[in-house]
C-alpha cells in the first residue's frame, strides 16, 4: 500500500515537472516551431505520467482503460494540431520568401 502511494506521488510529480518544462519552453523559446515542440512533446509526456499516476491511484481496470484512452486521444489530437500549425507557418514563410525574392 505504502509503496503504491509513493510511486503514485513520484509519477504525479514527474508529470508536473514535464508540464512545467513545457510551459517554460512555450514562454521562453524564440520561434513558433520550437515552441510547438516544447508544448506538444513535454506536455504529452507530462500527461502520460499523470495518467499513469492516477491510474495507479484509482486501480480499477475500467478507470485505467478510460484514463489511457484520454491520453491516447489527446496524443492524437495534439500531435495533429501541432503538425497543422507547423505546416501553416511553413507555407506562410515560404510564400513570404517567394515574395521577397521575386
Amino acid at each position: 500500500m505504502m509503496i503504491k502511494e509513493v510511486i503514485t506521488v513520484i509519477l504525479l510529480v514527474v508529470g508536473c515537472f514535464f508540464f512545467l518544462a513545457g510551459t517554460l519552453g512555450v514562454l521562453r523559446f524564440p520561434d513558433l516551431f520550437s515552441r510547438l515542440h516544447a508544448l506538444t512533446k513535454a506536455d504529452n509526456l507530462g500527461l502520460g505520467f499523470i495518467a499513469a499516476g492516477m491510474a495507479l491511484h484509482i486501480g480499477s481496470p475500467w478507470a485505467v482503460l478510460k484514463i489511457f484512452s484520454i491520453w491516447f486521444f489527446t496524443l492524437l489530437a495534439s500531435s495533429t494540431s501541432c503538425y497543422l500549425i507547423a505546416r501553416f507557418q511553413k507555407e506562410k514563410d515560404q510564400a513570404r520568401n517567394r515574395k521577397e525574392e521575386g
Binding site: 492524437l76 489530437a77 497543422l84
Partner: peptide, 12 residues
C-alpha cells in the same frame, strides 16, 4: 488534400 488530416478525421 492532407493525408494526415484526413486520416485523423476519419479516425475521430
Amino acid at each position: 488534400d492532407d493525408i494526415l488530416l484526413r486520416q485523423v478525421i476519419l479516425f475521430f
